[in-house]
Design a binder for these strands. Structure first.
Lengths: 339, 339
DNA sequence: CTGTTAGCGCCTTCAT
DNA sequence: ATGAAGGCGCTAACAG
């Protein structure tokens, strides 16, 4: 049987359509008597206003779109959790656009920011490229960049973390412990998804090296897919170097796990023989006792939604760039180098 | 500026509304000449049919709802990934209803299975209770139960795993190694969310114990929240027993990690002093070398979507119960007990 | 305060 | 093969 409509309710309550609509929307323009009568009819019919019709009539989708790559990776999940929980309290639904291929990336970046699809868009961890800019700037929908950036997009709200600074902190920590030979394992610095975090962390790494008078050794930098296996493979190669590093900075905790495996394979003790620092402080990091750089993943999700909701409520506001802090978490994978 | 509508396209192409609609929907009832003309107008106007209007007109939501608890837990994520990837190829959108409280559980279970909200519903890892049954059976929407069950719901499609069997396999593995004192750490067997997996695995555990002539020792069973910390706490208590178990079966890999921590705290080597087997085979299990029971998480998501889509396409079909296999993965946390 | 009416953008008959 | 018209369920503006 078909679900009850506003019309059924009106008939049952013996009122007009408009009145039912007013009751639904908590309009003050209804007498208590009729409100009760209508409410009764609603309850009896187990009526719920059809969201699709509502959206069409309102000209709003009541939906927020989140474009996020590889949404099963722990760090992205944690961001999404912040998004989801914050949004759950609102009247907005969440649509997740999971990006796992470059084609999909481009398609989402260009097609999703549309009024017909969402009232607001969160672009997470995917920095637009120059070719994307026209699509984004002409979008008639508020957009918030989360963990993403682009020089010419200062007119967008952004919630970011200073990855260059994070790279500095990590590297400085290792140097403070006395390390001079410091490896860096990362995603591909140049990649079709335009992930920028590794690039930024690498920059911080190099800045600090230079500041400490340590020349950058290209052999100590290996890049590859963002996967444990791959990181393990890369680390194994670096650790086989005649003058192997005494410390490795992995640009994510996941990759740090790969390094841990490589160290195990090479019979290197961590941290006695090899120090290791990761990045993100995902949940598993604590279990592993991994020293890492914490960033506020959950909070980045929360904040970005709040900014978006405020924009939707108040209308365009002065675009802000919200820079979340970064923190060194010292656990048990870093120590002074062997003498 | 407002997005282009079908009307704009019609005007630009010099045809009627209906024709544009036909072109959009690949109707054969359009001559090639006009089709091209219309397509040109569509491209020029950068027109995309408004999904909301489409849904209202079609009387379909073109949306699949997935009710899933704690969607950030690795095992649920992996199921969701199967759902998402499979659905991405279809014309259906995915709406995730994340359940983290009992109130929300009840609300979702009762309100989500409605035609107005979704064309199909996936209920993941949440077994309906008796009180939910009326809401579910009267739902006018196809429902697929994933990793969930209920005796009176044989009319629903289900994709499940035999957790009792999984519990048996895990326990048998330990017994085969020579263990007689086997602990079991699990979620609360009775819980307001009505998670049933721990209960089933526990049953398998007890069956095998009994079959081996080993009396069940209640001291060896501890239940608590599904969290590493909690599992660690529970394991610590069990391991402090005068006659502590030589092996522990944790009802999830996450909890197994807690046990690992407890063992570490107690200076117990795994597997020399304590054997440990988990459940799920989430990604981290491999890194940890954890012996565990693998279930096809990703595939459960895929299959459930396929069943749902087929139902939507073909209409009601004979409800099936798809039982996915379970597999023992032996790694390095189980061995014969110390003599 | 309340009933009525005109859309929202699209799909689908029904004529032509 | 194509145009015109009615309707999907709701909101909002208007008249009373």
């Amino acid at each position: 049987m078909k679900p009850a409509t506003i019309r059924d309710v009106a008939q049952k309550a013996g009122v007009g359509l408009g009145t039912v609509s007013r009751v639904i929307n908590d309009s003050p323009l209804v007498s208590d008597a009729t409100r009760i009568r209508v409410q009764q009819a609603i309850d009896e019919l187990n009526f719920i206003p059809n969201p699709t019709a509502r959206r069409l009539s309102l000209g709003k989708t009541l939906t927020i779109a989140a474009i996020v790559p590889f949404f099963t990776r722990p760090s992205f999940i944690e961001r999404l959790r912040g998004v989801e929980l914050t949004l759950a309290e609102s009247e907005y639904a969440l649509n997740i656009y999971n990006v796992e291929t470059v084609e999909r990336r481009d398609q989402c970046m260009r097609q999703v920011p549309r009024k017909e699809l969402a009232d607001g868009v969160l672009i997470i961890s995917l920095s637009p490229r120059n070719e994307d800019i026209p699509y984004i700037t002409r979008a008639d929908v508020p957009i918030v960049l989360v963990d993403a950036n682009h020089p010419s997009l200062t007119l967008l709200n952004r919630v970011v973390v200073d990855d260059v600074e994070g790279g500095r902190i990590a590297t400085q920590h290792l140097i403070n412990l006395g390390h001079r030979r410091i490896g860096f394992i990362s995603d591909f610095l140049e990649n079709p998804f335009n992930f920028t975090s590794s690039r930024d962390r690498f920059q911080g790494y190099r800045e600090v090296l230079e500041g400490a008078g340590i020349p950058f050794n290209p052999d100590y930098h290996a890049q590859g897919e963002h996967e444990r296996y791959e990181a393990c493979r890369l680390a194994t190669k670096i650790l086989a170097l005649p003058d192997r590093p005494t410390a490795i900075f992995a640009s994510s905790d996941t990759q740090a796990m790969g390094v841990l495996e490589a160290a195990r394979d090479c019979n290197l003790r961590v941290p006695e023989d090899l120090s290791l620092i990761g990045y993100d402080d995902i949940e598993i990091a604590e279990h592993l006792g991994l020293t890492t750089i914490r960033q506020l993943l959950f909070e980045s999700g929360q904040r970005s939604v709040n900014v978006l909701l405020k924009t939707l409520e108040i209308g365009l506001i002065e675009p802000k760039c919200d820079v979340l802090p970064t923190e060194l978490i010292i656990r048990h994978t870093t120590a002074s180098p062997p003498i």
